[in-house]
């Protein structure tokens, strides 16, 4: 199921001016125009004047071309790159606190090692794991942790860069001009 969902997602990486209110301009645009955000991550870039937003949208329910065009009209939006379903390397981070009493603790740690997750906190009957990876992998991990009993789980939302191929780049610049 997770994999099928993957296929519908488009990723927009949006370079924005690092200024007051930019996140609410972007978020407001999505709600005003009736587009759905699947996930959203905001991070600083190596240039402190800019931040990067990674917006994952459902390509079926949202008109991706309209979204990028409308985003382009926001004045603090500098550049938008669009990654189609297979065009990006996507990673996400997950923290999960699971029930892990003495009788199952070793099973949980074993699962953690299969997923190359790290144990970042241990309590008497619970453990917090951290795992980074593709969204699919995190889905699998959380499915497998579920039977133990998930107490809390958080994911960062994904960040993405274009896949490298023998062609120079698959990055498509869609911001060229605005009105």
């Amino acid at each position: 199921m997770a994999a099928r969902e993957e296929a519908r997602h488009h990723i927009l990486t949006v370079l924005v001016e690092n200024k007051f209110g930019v996140l609410s301009r972007v978020a407001g645009l999505f709600s005003r125009r009736g587009y759905n955000i699947y996930s959203l991550a905001v991070s600083p870039t190596d240039d402190e004047r800019f931040s990067r937003m990674t917006v994952v949208v459902d390509a079926e329910s949202s008109p991706i071309e309209q979204i990028t065009k409308q985003l382009n009209k926001l004045i603090p939006v500098i550049k938008i790159n669009e990654l189609g379903p297979d065009e990006g390397v996507e990673r996400e981070l997950m923290l999960a606190t699971v029930k892990a009493g003495p009788e199952v603790r070793s099973q949980v740690t074993e699962l953690a090692s299969i997923f190359e997750a790290r144990i970042v906190d241990v309590g008497f009957d619970a453990m917090t794991l951290m795992v980074a990876g593709s969204p699919n992998r995190l889905d699998a991990m959380s499915d497998l942790l579920a039977p133990f009993g998930i107490i809390e789980l958080q994911r960062t939302g994904r960040i993405a860069l274009p896949k490298l191929t023998r062609q120079p780049t698959r990055l498509r610049t869609v911001k060229s001009r605005s009105a």
């Binding site: 309209q66 065009k69 409308q70 009209k73 001009r177 009105a179």
Partner: peptide, 19 residues
């Protein structure tokens, strides 16, 4: 023809869009 690219294709897909 429109100065706002977002108008092109918003409602009706043009055969010849000109920004």
């Amino acid at each position: 023809v429109d100065v706002d690219p977002a108008e092109l294709g918003k409602v009706r897909r043009p055969d010849v869009p000109i920004v």
